[in-house]
Amino acid sequence: MVNILIISHSLKIAEGTKELAEEMKQDEVDIQIAGGINNGELGTDADLIEQKLKNMDYKDGIVVLADLGSAVMSFNMVKEWLPEEKQKLIKLANAPLVEGAVLGAVEASLGKSLKEVMAAIEKKSIINKNNL
């Protein structure tokens, strides 16, 4: 199963996004968060991202959803510290955080591959709001 890591400047956003995504999953997908710094302040904790990426099961891949600037920058940096083989299995999605996490949880829990999950959540239509 593909697993999901949510990185946000805000612990509340990360927790809320995880909660929404958990609700939709059809099977066991590990959804982890790295939100905020110092238990609640706004910011990005590179050590926490590193710890999550080290501990999560990545054999089928990890999809990463990040919000802004330093979340993306810190993730990219931490990823470079991992072994190359592992780097290939960790993908940052070009997707909005909430929509990406929810759809990602559905797709991953249906047993889709890393490539399939990424393709699903990177579709431009993911941001449509007027034709639901």
Partner: peptide
Amino acid sequence: LISNVGGASGPLYGT
């Protein structure tokens, strides 16, 4: 700096 700054300046100055 990478571990403690919390904003983009951490990874930027850190690197």
